[in-house]
Amino acid sequence: MPRLLVQRLLQAIPLLLIVSLLVFALIHAAPGGPLTLYLSNPNVRPADIERLRRALGLDQPLWQQYLAWLCAFVRGDWGYSYADGRPVLDRLLERLPATLELIATSMALGALVALPLGIVGAVRRHGWFDRLTTVLSFAGISLPVFWFGLLLQLVFAVTLGWLPSSGRSGMGGGGFVDRVEHLVLPAGVLALVHAAAWSRYLRASMSQVLRQPFMIAARARGVPDRTLWLRHALRNALIPVLTVVLLDAAIMVSGAVVTESVFAWPGVGSLFTESLARRDYTVLMAFLMLSSCAVVALGLVADLLYGRLDPRVGGDPS
């Protein structure tokens, strides 16, 4: 196991180096580079811009800038936000809890819905329930999140007045109920998207397991249906589903950006869209690097977990 871990970690390094090169190149492709914001501001004198260029090392050759930035990034020194002059790391960290709360809640809700849908869909394949959920899951996969979020706001917050339309409580007091009320809409939208995709994965994976000879053997031994489905089939079917879910992390990041912006949820995702509007490149760059690192890390976890959970996979993956 440790050998596999080391091998995988070593493979992740060139991957992250390529990611960092891409991100760096993208930001510096902007006309005026990271200082675009100041160039369009009539109150900033050319001399000040020149001073800033030197202070930020922007007058050096690109490859030196890249190396300096990369070294600083690895050390955790992610520069300062152009918007308010505070360290980027601080700004990201203060937004992270809200994002984690949203993602964790939506994943839990999504799993709660996807599990029964996937199981019943596989066990009663082509039955009426399976057909209904197939249609619904296709709708869920195709739903533009930003539009659906607006509709839910309109119905539940504006028209019915049942729920707050945006924001997160917990800053100005607000009890547990208030906290939950703010969480319902954004977490619900994300959960729906997750549930749509995950129930499909589970249905496909479970259908395959149900066809295995050991299922017929178990049935022949007189194992009751419930045990057959939940203990024998589900446990095996969940292994590939779990890894696919982890590999979908990049999609989850995109989903969080959209959902947080629509519902003004004060997380990392809405920090990203706020920074985008201000062309605050240090924050954007850090966000993209951080989320890509998270995606690579989760991919690593998926790999290792798969080997752990399914003894047939162990061995020497190439």
Partner: peptide, 23 residues
């Protein structure tokens, strides 16, 4: 394939949002 993996690791929508803002 390493390049492909790297591209897959960068969340697509934020990447495109920055690219669009830049160009």
């Amino acid at each position: 394939m390493r390049f492909t993996d790297a591209m897959l690791a960068i969340p697509r929508l934020p990447l495109l949002m920055i690219a669009s803002a830049v160009v």
